[in-house]
Design a protein around this nucleic acid. Structure first.
Length: 435
DNA sequence: TCTGGGGTCCTAGGACCC
DNA sequence: TCTGGGGTCCTAGGACCC
């Protein structure tokens, strides 16, 4: 798609493009038999619904619903239940964003299925054609249907996008005061981006029910009653952009958490699970070229169980920032000693890496370097190569081709019950076969 | 039986300093 | 009896997002 970038700046408009029911749409790209059928994609461990087709939404299956709360609908309505396939979704997302990058010079990827484009180089009369072309291009090249909302601020673009979906339209452009007000009047304040349950309650107590009501408030009123977030919201609803662009912001934390298919009670089992988490953390850090200097881990019992809830936490600070798997595992084990309490039945575990810094910083000498023997120094130099070799092998030959013995040989705590679709676009062994 | 995972931002309040 | 005050920094936890 070629769009001329004009020298003359038009008043800024924002476009929000998102993939409809993204994970379901990704599944349908390679499995057309899922079209026009209720489809639900489940979270890790098949716990609850994280994506639903429109047909599944019409059956009343809410976002985040635990599988057992709608399992009675599966057979009578022939609902297709799929385990999540994040490798496929991430790859199709990357492809979708690549197309968007060719559509506009200024793109801000907001999530796996959403991106904002700044349209300051287009005149208002061009928005309609622009949105239609984006929709057509992504559908043709990726196979994902999208919805596009265009408005003077990001918050209004979100509202436009939401309203377009309600009206079963491909796009909605809010470019006049009348249109904006009309849309705000029919949008509950709780449906505004940034307004959650707590804020909805507060706003209702203050007599604010629709987003139009909120847009009528003075920014100072919002600051007094709702803090700086509220003021920002009011201004955005009044067509004054004030959500800053996030440019190349470095990631601040990485976490890996999992709930388990069966509870575990022993230190040994927990240590194996957390060792696997630490291994995954190492992979993620190295992939992002980051290091961490502090980790916290937790192990907790089932929040929904009637028995008293226990959450054990422990942390570990490294003498110097690291992304070495073995070092991360050692730190994790130290932290677990603090967190583990015998006598509990643990249901979920996690590791959280903080104080992330650029990998390049590793090259800086520590202020008080530890005295290492010649052997230790030689080993230290080998560490990045060992990690890199393991990462390459696991990437090429499959996850866990090589793994640390501390993670245990058999692990039946994560296995999903439903089937994951093939990784059509990222794994040679799982390519689609044309007959 | 069965209730996700990975992030960011903001604020209140404690610790600490002078 | 009356036990400073103003500032900064850090952190835990809440709220929110997809």
């Amino acid at each position: 798609m070629s769009s001329t970038i004009c020298e003359t700046k038009h008043p800024a408009f924002f476009a929000l493009i998102d993939g409809n029911n993204f994970f379901v749409s990704c599944e349908r790209v390679f499995n057309p038999s899922l079209n026009n059928k209720p489809v639900v994609v489940l979270s890790h461990n098949d716990g609850c619904a994280i994506a639903r087709s429109n047909e599944a939404k019409q059956l009343g299956i809410p976002m985040g619903a635990p599988l057992h709360t709608f399992s009675h609908l599966i057979k009578p309505h022939c609902i297709a239940i799929l385990s999540s396939n994040f490798e496929l979704y991430t790859d199709l997302s990357r492809r979708m964003m690549c197309i968007l990058k060719t559509c506009a010079p200024d793109i801000e990827i907001y999530s796996i299925d959403e991106a904002f484009l700044t349209l300051s180089y287009l005149s208002a009369t061009e928005h309609n054609v622009f949105a239609t072309r984006i929709y057509d291009t992504i559908l043709k090249h990726i196979g994902i249907p999208t919805t596009i909302g265009i408005a003077p601020t990001k918050t209004l673009a979100k509202i436009a996008n939401r309203q377009a979906k309600h009206l079963s339209k491909i796009h909605l452009i809010l470019n006049t005061e009348n249109l904006i007000n009309q849309t705000l009047r029919t949008t509950n304040v709780g449906d505004v981006w940034g307004v959650g349950k707590a804020l909805t309650h507060t706003l209702r107590c203050l007599g604010v029910y629709t987003s139009y009501d909120l847009a009528q408030k003075k920014p100072m009123w919002a600051r007094q009653h709702l803090s700086i977030m509220g003021e920002r919201l009011v201004r955005e609803l009044q067509s004054i952009p004030c959500i800053p662009r996030h440019i190349n912001k470095q990631q601040k934390s990485i976490q890996i958490t999992r709930s388990l298919r069966r509870n575990v009670t022993t230190f040994n089992e927990l240590s194996q699970l957390l060792s696997a988490h630490a291994t995954r953390l190492g992979e993620k850090l190295r992939q992002a070229k980051l290091t961490t200097s502090e980790i916290t881990i937790f192990c907790q019992t089932n929040r929904f169980s009637k028995t008293p809830h226990y959450k054990g936490e422990g942390s570990f600070t490294f003498t110097e920032p690291t992304n070495d798997t073995q070092t991360l595992i050692k730190g994790t084990m130290h932290a677990l000693i603090h967190a583990f309490l015998d006598g509990h039945s643990y249901h979920s575990t996690g590791i959280h890496a903080l104080n992330l810094t650029d990998e390049g910083m590793l090259k800086q000498k520590a202020l008080f370097p530890s005295q290492l023997s010649q052997n230790q120094t030689a080993r230290k130099k080998c560490i990045p190569h060992i990690n890199s070799a393991i990462d390459t092998l696991n990437k090429r030959l499959g996850k866990n081709t090589i793994f640390w013995a501390s993670s245990g040989i058999q692990n039946d705590t994560h296995k999903p019950a439903h089937s994951r679709s093939p990784r059509y676009t990222t794994n040679w062994h799982e390519l689609a076969i044309v007959r």
